[in-house]
Design a binder for these strands. Sequence first.
DNA 1: AACATTTTGCAACATAGTTGCAATAGTGTA
DNA 2: TACACTATTGCAACTATGTTGCAAAATGTT
Lengths: 141, 141
Amino acid sequence: MEQKIIDLLKRSSLSITDSRKKILESFFQENSALAHADIEDYVGEDFDRVTIYRTLQTFVDKGIIHTIPTPDNAVLYALCKDSCSAGHHHDNHVHFICDNCNKTFCLEHVVVPTVHMPVGFAASQIDMVVSGICNYCNATT
Amino acid sequence: MEQKIIDLLKRSSLSITDSRKKILESFFQENSALAHADIEDYVGEDFDRVTIYRTLQTFVDKGIIHTIPTPDNAVLYALCKDSCSAGHHHDNHVHFICDNCNKTFCLEHVVVPTVHMPVGFAASQIDMVVSGICNYCNATT
DNA sequence: AACATTTTGCAACATAGTTGCAATAGTGTA
DNA sequence: TACACTATTGCAACTATGTTGCAAAATGTT
């Protein structure tokens, strides 16, 4: 894990710092998308709030994570797949929010469908967020 | 307009107050979705910030307006069509955000497509937000 | 190890949204 | 129209979230 994280940082030409390692670790540890507050909880008192904001912004810029829009307007972040590179995200998959456990997942294999736009409208990006019950909650209740 | 607004409030069994009239007016006046700040600008100094928050919440509860999730996580509100009733929204249409003029529109006639969920996931609500260039901006540039 | 460059922490600030409570305005009834 | 009852509003205070400038500390390079 430690090595995987260091490799990822090097590949993105970022210097290896404690906060970056810890924050990336939180994403690999949890398998769902994380809110800023989740990360703050995970890293504990080790790092300043501001550092987390800046680190997340850096990761987004470098294509390591992407943001997810949610209906309740909380900012969520999730790891990008390897195909993402700096400034060129490929996160055209559907995001799923579980109403039960409240976790958010990337449905990597569910591609956002195209829709037919009215005359005059030109689409450049499409976000799709589905909410409901996730597979884990469905299996255990 | 005044009468249309009063009728709408009565139909929702809400008392007719100055702030409710003024805030509804802002939605009928502008044809796009509005952020809290837009409404604050529109009503000026007439009403307290808190009143606007509470009024918007009331309108959402009564099915007069609905919220729109946006990729940059600003809360937007737009008028519901008549088919919406209290606690039972039918806003299953696509929302469009113009990257040029920054306005958000309800594409009432573009229905959110269904997508095939992975095994174990049950979808209950789908939000779709498209960004690009709107018909007005495409026509004038 | 020494230096230049990044990154971090702190303080201060800005914006967004919430809550309790007293004052005010709106509604139905006589 | 006046009254009383209820709903709504404004104020103050508070929490949460996010940003910026600058000095101190850590990182990468030689």
